[in-house]
Structure formats: structure tokens, C-alpha cells
């Protein structure tokens, strides 16, 4: 009996810590958002990281396109989702963020169309998406992989506006002026598109 009492006294700090660790988490408020607009810019990646450029020319091997995708919250808000038992893991408290943002429409495809003759196989108005890759330091993704593997569920309002960098991994053999049309196809059937400024590949 005395042994059990001693054991209880010894375990008390641990049990107290465990009880305190149980989270008193607030419910997560579910917001909804819709993909609204895109704005595209030319990128110069000749330096350490891609930078938006308004220059008239760029090294063709260091060219890229930045898509600024703007998403807006819709009026729809779900009731707070209270999760019971979301407590001590390794005697620490992890609560979900107070907000979650779910998409009403999601990206199904990203396309890049050349508005000039890119090479002998891809004349003006051809799809040159295969020559670009999405770049997230230090990883490259095909457009399909990026769309499939990027979570559309967000936890912070700041994440509603994102930049997607497309880098030209197979430049054309020749130099000259180039302009591209970027299209983002959404699950609700809409297509967001914008043209890059014309730039000379050198």
C-alpha cells in the first residue's frame, strides 16, 4: 500500500503535466474561397533567385513567368468545428489553427501558350507548357504534378494570394521577341488567363 502511495506521489508531476497538456482548443471556423484573377510578369532568374523584370531582354536560359493568383473569401462560413480529444501528444498541446479556408473551385490545369513562333515544332498559338516547370525552391514540378499535389486547403488568410513561378527549362535555339499567354483552368469551368509583356530572348 505504501508503495502505491509513493508511486502516486512520484507520478503526480507527470500526470499533472499530462492534464495541463490536454488542449482547450477553440473550434476551427471554416471559410470558403474562390480563385478570382491572375496577373503575370516576366521573370529574370539569372541571379540567385527569380526576380520580376521589366527589362526589354533576358537570357533565354534564365527566363520565367510569375503568376500572381488572387483568391477571395466568399460569404459562406461554416459553424465552428469542435474537435474533442485533441490533446496531449508527447505531452505537448497542438491545436488546429482557428481558421481553415476551403476552395469552392480548384485548379485543374496550368497552360502556357506561345504567341510567337517558339521553334519549328511550336509555332505561334502552340501549347509550350511542356517546356516550363513550376519552381518552388529548390524543387521543380511539371504543371500536372503541381496541380495534383498542391493542397487547396489553407489555414492562413495571407495564403489566399500566392505566386507561382514557371521557369523555362527548354529554351528555343534562336533568339528574338517572345510573348506567352498563361491560362489557369478551374474546376467550375472558368479559365483565368493573361498575356506576359513581350520580351527579347538573348
Amino acid at each position: 500500500m505504501a508503495f502505491k502511495k509513493i508511486l502516486l506521489v512520484l507520478l503526480f508531476p507527470f500526470l499533472a503535466d499530462l492534464v495541463v497538456s490536454c488542449c482547450n482548443c477553440l473550434g476551427t471556423v471554416i471559410h470558403h474561397y474562390t480563385n478570382k484573377t491572375i496577373a503575370v510578369s516576366n521573370l529574370d532568374n539569372s541571379g540567385q533567385a527569380p526576380q520580376i523584370t521589366s527589362s526589354a531582354s533576358v537570357f533565354k536560359s534564365a527566363y520565367g513567368i510569375r503568376i500572381k493568383l488572387t483568391r477571395e473569401k466568399t460569404a459562406l462560413i461554416d459553424k465552428p468545428m469542435i474537435v474533442f480529444g485533441e490533446c496531449a501528444y508527447a505531452r505537448e498541446c497542438f491545436c488546429r489553427p482557428p481558421d481553415q479556408f476551403l476552395p469552392d473551385d480548384s485548379l485543374t490545369a496550368i497552360r502556357v501558350i506561345t504567341l510567337n513562333d517558339f521553334n519549328s515544332d511550336h509555332l505561334a498559338n502552340s501549347d509550350v507548357s511542356g517546356y516550363f516547370k513550376v519552381y518552388v525552391p529548390y524543387s521543380f514540378y511539371t504543371f500536372d504534378d503541381y496541380v495534383k499535389n498542391t493542397s487547396a486547403s489553407l489555414f492562413y488568410e495571407n495564403d489566399l494570394q500566392i505566386n507561382i513561378d514557371l521557369l523555362l527549362m527548354t529554351p528555343p535555339a534562336s533568339v528574338g521577341a517572345h510573348q506567352f499567354r498563361v491560362q489557369i483552368v478551374l474546376s467550375d469551368g472558368r479559365t483565368l488567363e493573361q498575356d506576359t509583356p513581350t520580351i527579347d530572348f538573348i
Binding site: Q48, F59, S61, G64, Y138, L168
Partner: peptide, 12 residues
């Protein structure tokens, strides 16, 4: 990570 100068290539 080696980011090539004047190019988009990156080597790890």
C-alpha cells in the same frame, strides 16, 4: 544547392 548563374538549372 547550386543555382547556375544566368540559367534556371539547379543542382543538389
Amino acid at each position: 544547392y547550386l543555382k547556375q548563374k544566368n540559367a534556371n538549372d539547379v543542382i543538389e
